[in-house]
Amino acid sequence: MLVSCFKMTKSGVLFTLITLSFCYLAFAFEPAPLQDFCVAETNSSARVNGLACKNPMLVEANDFFFSGLHITGNTSNSVGSKVTPVTVAQLTGLNTLGISMARIDYAPWGINPPHTHPRASEILTVLEGSLHVGFVTSNPDNRLITKVLQKGDVFVFPVGLVHFQHNVGYGHAVAIAALSSQNPGVITIANAVFGSNPPIASEVLAKAFRVDKNVVDQLQSKF
């Protein structure tokens, strides 16, 4: 009898762990929509995890439409790249759908600096040019996974990992990115670390990067 109860207890614990694992997976992604669509009501003051829904009777075709990805981005800046996003901020019909996209233009030798999307994985397709791309795995390995892409090549950046793109050609390069969130977010590492408001204490950054405080001060002044 005792052995039988012990087996039942083990089975119950196993079932509970499996159930919890499925719950974890369910909550690891954005919630599925409970209606055909939820066009974002940008003027709403409602506080929700996302954007409130527009009255469906007032929805029109333009709520699901965006024009402009054929336009070349202005890359005359310090990094030599321009991202044209199409997230829920630009296309309100994306609200709750869990997808977005972007066009990235690169000047010759321009970069899309190391950054991360806290809420999305990204799949990048090269339309023109040659791009050196890569991402870094999490601690403790911090392994760099990198490859040079040509026109028509596709590369995936897993959610939350730091990644970059670098135009390694002499001509203009273009890529299209698809992301698994209507609001993927972006954290550019250098901007966040050296350009935070208010600034992170230079003593903290000097110790973290193992450099002299003057080096940190110089970097912070650039942001």
Rank of each mutant, 00 (worst) to 15 (best):
Q182S: 13
R210Q: 15
G134Y: 04
D217R: 09
F157E: 10
A201I: 06
F155V: 03
D153L: 01
N191H: 01
T188Y: 04
H132T: 09
I189M: 13
F155S: 03
T188S: 03
N167L: 08
I187R: 03
F194S: 04
T137D: 08
V133E: 12
L149R: 07
V148H: 01
I200W: 08
L144D: 06
A178D: 00
V136R: 13
N197T: 11
H132K: 10
V168R: 09
S196A: 14
D217S: 12
S202E: 15
N214Y: 11
P198R: 05
G160K: 14
D153W: 00
V216C: 05
F209K: 03
F209D: 08
Q165S: 11
A175F: 01
L161R: 07
P199Y: 02
F155N: 02
I145R: 08
G171F: 02
Y170K: 15
A208I: 12
R143C: 04
V154N: 08
N142A: 07
V156G: 04
H132Y: 14
V148E: 11
D217F: 02
A192F: 10
R143N: 11
T188E: 03
F155T: 02
S180F: 00
V162H: 10
K147F: 04
F157M: 08
P184E: 13
F194D: 08
G169P: 12
H172S: 11
D217W: 00
L219G: 04
I176Y: 11
G152M: 08
F155R: 04
V133Y: 11
P198S: 05
V148Y: 02
R143T: 12
N142M: 06
G152T: 09
H132M: 10
S202L: 10
F209R: 06
G185K: 02
L161W: 02
L144C: 02
L144V: 15
N214T: 14
E203P: 02
N197W: 00
V216R: 03
D217Y: 04
F157A: 09
P198T: 07
K207R: 09
K151F: 02
A201G: 02
A190E: 10
V193G: 05
P198G: 03
L219A: 14
N142G: 03
D153K: 00
I189Q: 06
D141H: 13
I187A: 05
K147I: 07
G185S: 07
V215H: 07
L131S: 11
L161P: 14
P184R: 05
T137L: 11
F155L: 02
Y170V: 10
Q150P: 00
H172Q: 13
P199L: 01
I145V: 15
L179D: 01
S202Q: 15
P140I: 12
V133A: 15
T146H: 12
V168T: 13
S180W: 00
G134D: 03
L179H: 03
A175R: 07
L131T: 13
L131R: 10
T188P: 01
A206W: 03
D212P: 01
I145D: 04
K151A: 10
G169Q: 09
P158T: 06
L131A: 11
I187V: 09
I200K: 05
H132P: 07
L131I: 12
A208V: 15
G152N: 09
R210H: 13
G152H: 11
D153Y: 00
A206N: 01
N214V: 09
K207W: 00
